[in-house]
Design a protein around this nucleic acid. Structure first.
Ligand code: FES
Ligand code: FES
Lengths: 142, 142
DNA sequence: TTATATAAAGACGTTTTTGTCTTTTAATAA
DNA sequence: TTATTAAAAGACAAAAACGTCTTTATATAA
């Protein structure tokens, strides 16, 4: 479904949402240890998310990653588009050049409504909303 | 969504379903040219499908790939399970060790119903059914 | 029996994804 | 100002996915 990059990224963002009360900052190492994911790899993902405006960061002593109000107000889908690419929810599931109900491939009407359904949900839910009422253990590996 | 292996494989199976009236056989080259996919790569995919009992083949002069009655009666999902692996429709979309509604990850209730919906459709549709009423151009690239 | 056509097997190469490590830049505390 | 801390940048490497090619086995036709 999602790449490891994307899976780690979503969980890291939610980790920040759940633990960041009071302007706390977190290093990639701290997050990676909590989520049990490769630390250097996660550091790169956080950097990419930072470039995409999905997370905020501060350099130097006392610095680290965190979520600003703006970050929290972003729709969840933006995490996925940033890490999987802008085309993730576009195009034919069988890889054909065009995708339309006018000339549908054999799987079009089975797959596209479901994909569009997920897309709609993620477009209309902010990171804050997704993290609300979430138990911190829900992003942990066991 | 699907890997290239899986996308090429599904289209190749449907090519055989649509063109195989009258016990015709097709070489990987013929199929690859029609579908505009890499021929040697497709040959490997067809071999894997053959091992999985999704397509049939005959060696030697006049041989090639085709679909038997048994092949046509297989559910569409088996193509995907063969080429993506048996775990494709299983497990947590965020990669967590366990997936259950008892301890759901943040995306569980958004993603799992949709995935299960697609799974159910593909389990309950045979290759023959999927190919019925299909226009051959629907598996072509343009 | 011989030539030919074809799948099967397997070696090899390229690209993308995933993962690791070191060096540089910048912010803060003392 | 100096030491320390932490993100940013970038080099490197392993694994998986994607793709190509050659050789071998086998069935059919002549
Ligand atoms: S044409 Fe293939 S998914 Fe729409
Ligand atoms: S727990 Fe993640 S999808 Fe079910």
């Amino acid at each position: 479904m999602f790449s490891k990059t994307c899976r780690y990224g979503i969980r890291a963002v939610l980790f920040l949402a759940l633990n960041g009360k009071g302007a706390k900052r977190f290093s990639p190492d701290t997050i990676a240890e909590a989520l049990e994911v490769p630390r250097y790899f996660l550091a790169k993902i956080l950097l990419q998310l930072s470039r995409g405006g999905l997370v905020s960061s501060a350099k130097g002593r006392g610095g680290g990653f965190y979520l600003s109000e703006e970050n929290l107000a972003r729709p969840v889908i933006d995490i996925i588009l940033e890490l999987e690419g802008k085309e993730f929810f576009k195009g034919c599931v069988l890889g054909l050049k065009r995708c339309s109900s006018a000339k549908p491939c054999p799987m079009h009407f089975q797959a596209i409504p479901l994909r569009d359904g997920l897309k709609f949900q993620l477009e209309n839910q902010t990171i804050r909303e997704l993290s609300n009422g979430l138990n911190p253990i829900q992003i942990l590996n066991d």
